[in-house]
Design a protein around this nucleic acid. Sequence first.
DNA 1: TCATTTCATCGATGTTCTACGATGGACCTT
DNA 2: AAGGTCCATCGTAGAACATCGATGAAATGA
Lengths: 115, 115
Amino acid sequence: MTATSNKEACTPRTSQEGPDVRPVEGPQADEELASLTKALGHPARVQIMRLLVRREACICGDIVDELPLAQSTVSQHLKVLKDAGLIRGEIDGPRVCYCVEPRTLRRLKALVGSL
Amino acid sequence: MTATSNKEACTPRTSQEGPDVRPVEGPQADEELASLTKALGHPARVQIMRLLVRREACICGDIVDELPLAQSTVSQHLKVLKDAGLIRGEIDGPRVCYCVEPRTLRRLKALVGSL
DNA sequence: TCATTTCATCGATGTTCTACGATGGACCTT
DNA sequence: AAGGTCCATCGTAGAACATCGATGAAATGA
């Protein structure tokens, strides 16, 4: 199959976790907010997040095709988002399926909302 | 007076403006989200925003005292936030009063919320 | 087994960011 | 007028980032 998205591969196991009890203010939270916004602070990475959020499913491959950047550059951006915990990548045969990490995204929204 | 905050100098004239009609998705919105998060993507700048939001008023001077950075560096960070439209600075005699730009902050929240 | 596909990583290069001290302008206070 | 305070800007040095092409690893498929 062409497999551009996949609802099975990495359906968010974390989505029905309990509420986040971490404080939304304080030095720790500030660092976290800075780190998350920094990760998101690039047009290509925003675009990637949009792609993943819109589909509400993983995207297996084909992310490169959506962006006007070289494959290695896109891979680099995916790594930044992954290191920030905003997305997750699971190996699916020859491809890698990327999907958002709902928990971290919620955390980002909570932190921004606290401003 | 010592004047660390000032409710009069730049009370947000923009706070009772109408709702933002700009779209929260699309290429334009993506660029905007990237630009705003990039501006916020540094611990010092998050701290500055916290300072301003917490007081719900302007801070005239003294911002430097709150951060472990040189005056010129803090000024640099303030400029980044100002260029992004997240804060506003008004000259108040020898000092400059900084306060958040509620409109832009709301916009940021809306954009992040759309993810 | 061998070629192909998919992606991560490496190395190089140019750009941007972060930080500082020094300087200078604008505005009080005396 | 002189001195002091507050802050922006400049110049600079080092770190980090963004981008690309090339290479390599892992898995599939012929």
